[in-house]
Structures are given as C-alpha cells and as structure tokens.
Design a protein around this nucleic acid. Sequence first.
DNA 1: GTAATATTAAACCAAATGGTTGAATATGCA
DNA 2: TGCATATTCAACCATTTGGTTTAATATTAC
Lengths: 105, 105
Amino acid sequence: MVEYALHLDFLFSSLSDPTRRDILARVSRRELSVSDLVQHYNMSFAAISKHLMVMERAKLIVKRKEGRKQMVSLAPDALKGADEYLEQYRLMWQGRYDKLDALIQ
Amino acid sequence: MVEYALHLDFLFSSLSDPTRRDILARVSRRELSVSDLVQHYNMSFAAISKHLMVMERAKLIVKRKEGRKQMVSLAPDALKGADEYLEQYRLMWQGRYDKLDALIQ
DNA sequence: GTAATATTAAACCAAATGGTTGAATATGCA
DNA sequence: TGCATATTCAACCATTTGGTTTAATATTAC
C-alpha cells in the first residue's frame, strides 16, 4: 500500500526544521565543531547536539572525532535521496513548462 | 540567525510522511476524490482528510469542489520550492562529481 | 592530579503529530 | 421529504519533537 522508504522519512523531516537547514548550510561551507555551531544559535548546547543527531540519522551530516571535538561536515550525497525523489516529479513539471512554451511560441 | 522559510517547513514536513508521499504519487497521475483515496489506505476517512489538509497547507495539492465531492490534484509547482532549495546543493555535489571525473580521466 | 573544555546522556516538559470515534454539515437521489 | 453519500469538525489519546537543566564522560592543559 504505502511504499516503505524510512530514509526519505528521516531526510525530509530533518529538512523541515529551519535550525537544521541553517546548520546544513554552515557545514556545507566548512567543517565545524559542535561548539562552533552552538555559538550561532540561541539555544543550549544539548539542543544543537540533538539536532545533529537527527541530521546524522538522516545522513545529512557526518561527524569525525578530533581530540575532544566532534567535527561536523556535510555527508557525501547528503541530498541525493531527496533529489532522486524529486526527479520523477521534475519530469512532470518540466513537461508542463514545455507545453506552456509550446503554447507561447 | 536562522532563515525564516515557513513554506519549506511545511513542504518538507509534509513530504516526511510515507502516506502523504503515496497520496502525492496518486494524485499526480490523476485527479481523485477524498473517498477514492481513502480506499487505498488502512485508516479512517478523517485521517486521510487530515493528511490532505496538511498537504494543502504545504501547497502540494489543491482541492476543487465537485458537488459533494472534493477532487484532489497535484498543485502547480508543488515541488518547485523543494527543488529550488536543493539547487544550491546540487551545484555543490555535481561539482564534486566533476572533480572525481577529472581525477579518473 | 586537578581544572577547564567539549560533548552526550538522562529526565523532564509543552506542543505538535498521527491516529481514533462520533457528531455535524452539505449534497444528491428516490 | 427523507435517506444515503461525502466530507469536515471536535474531542480525545499515545507518541514524537524540540526544547530545557543537570549529571556524566572524555580529552586537554597546567
């Protein structure tokens, strides 16, 4: 009945929070420690740590231990799953634009 | 601090549920009434009705009244917001593949 | 060894989510 | 008119989510 794609569940729900999207943008520019990230937000260390756990489960980020720091960076192919999901619909809406273009010309 | 993009919140959180993704797939093929949709799922009419309200808020679907039926179809540009969000990252990961290609050749 | 730093774990809380059932509201049909 | 159909609304419930604070665990520095 309903297709079972747990990864898409995690991925999209992870992307649905503005703090997490902001974190994603930051770590996509450069690798950052959890402390580095915390400085930019008006919430506790633990809250950011939790957001990072959610993002890790969604395979949006990866962590690498460096001494006592956890360095966070964009996961390889972080958004590939989402992009592949959209692909099927992209054809559809590009099709519509093609039709529109055809009408105009 | 955190960019405010409520539509992306609604859009991604709407996409994070497998039932809603399934509904999206169905109505993208053809316009369907709420009753038509309910038949395919093992949950109450009200539950599906709620899912549709969530999807409407996310502008994934539109409803059109036809007598006592509500006909549901894919919204124009339903996934455009998501696609535009991914766009910035797409350049990034395509960049990586280009680098990889360069290494291989 | 002790203190400071970096992070996670645990317990808690309020609000949101995904479901239920039953009542209310429109619309169509005989 | 009265009944059946289609949908939403309202109240409820259990679970998840996004936050808090405090305690625990590593690691580094003195």
